[in-house]
């Protein structure tokens, strides 16, 4: 079984990776992308995930028994001959877009606020299709997790995730790495 932490960029995937690591799971990461102001605790990425659409799947067996982070765009590129447990992070589109804007600005990329409405529509449609696709895959087991609710109730969510993974995670340690100070782009409601 391979565990995938997924969701849109800036939906809390790195926080979930740090929780799973603290809980005792092994992560498939290469640390090529270093921690920065956007992800002060690191990105927990495996660069070759980005090559999945090009058919680079030979590494996937290395993820067996481990956790790998893959934004939702890559999910349908994982090979069908493995079983996957997906922790799919969800966050309000408004917060995701604000956080992405800050990140793009730091990276020197153009980030126009007026594009947000269109981008939100694209993301909504992409997530809807991804969820439909996931629901039809017999080898993908999925739990949808709200970033906001993890921050509000880390103990409850550590337990939920432990149950979903049927693991013996150290829930107290998972809770300790949840850092509310990193919840910087909050919606008003």
């Amino acid at each position: 079984m391979i565990t995938i932490v997924s969701g849109l960029p800036r939906s809390g995937t790195s926080m979930m990776m740090s929780m799973l690591e603290a809980g005792g799971l092994k992560l498939l990461v290469d640390n090529e992308r270093k921690a920065d102001d956007d992800n002060p605790k690191g990105y927990f990425e495996w660069e070759r995930v980005k090559k999945l659409p090009e058919g680079d799947i030979s590494w996937v067996e290395k993820a067996e028994g481990k956790v790998v982070k893959a934004v939702s765009y890559f999910l349908n590129h994982f090979p069908p001959n493995f079983e996957y447990q997906v922790i799919f992070m969800e966050r309000s589109y408004d917060e995701i877009l604000k956080s992405q804007k800050v990140m793009m600005e730091r990276r020197g990329e153009e980030a126009k606020r007026r594009e947000d409405k269109t981008m939100a529509e694209y993301f909504k449609s992409h997530i809807k299709k991804t969820k439909e696709w996931l629901s039809l895959q017999p080898n993908f087991y999925v739990i949808y997790v709200s970033y906001k609710q993890v921050l509000e109730n880390p103990t409850e969510y550590a337990q939920k995730i432990n149950e979903f993974l049927e693991a013996e995670l150290k829930e107290d340690k998972m809770v300790k790495v949840v850092d509310g100070k990193l919840y910087r782009q909050r919606s008003k409601n």
Binding site: V71, M104, E109, T118, Y122, H126
Partner: peptide, 16 residues
């Protein structure tokens, strides 16, 4: 168009 825009956004964020 959606695919193109999402790919572009992922590139800008360093995820692709």
């Amino acid at each position: 168009k959606e695919e193109e825009e999402i790919k572009e956004r992922l590139k800008k964020l360093g995820y692709l």
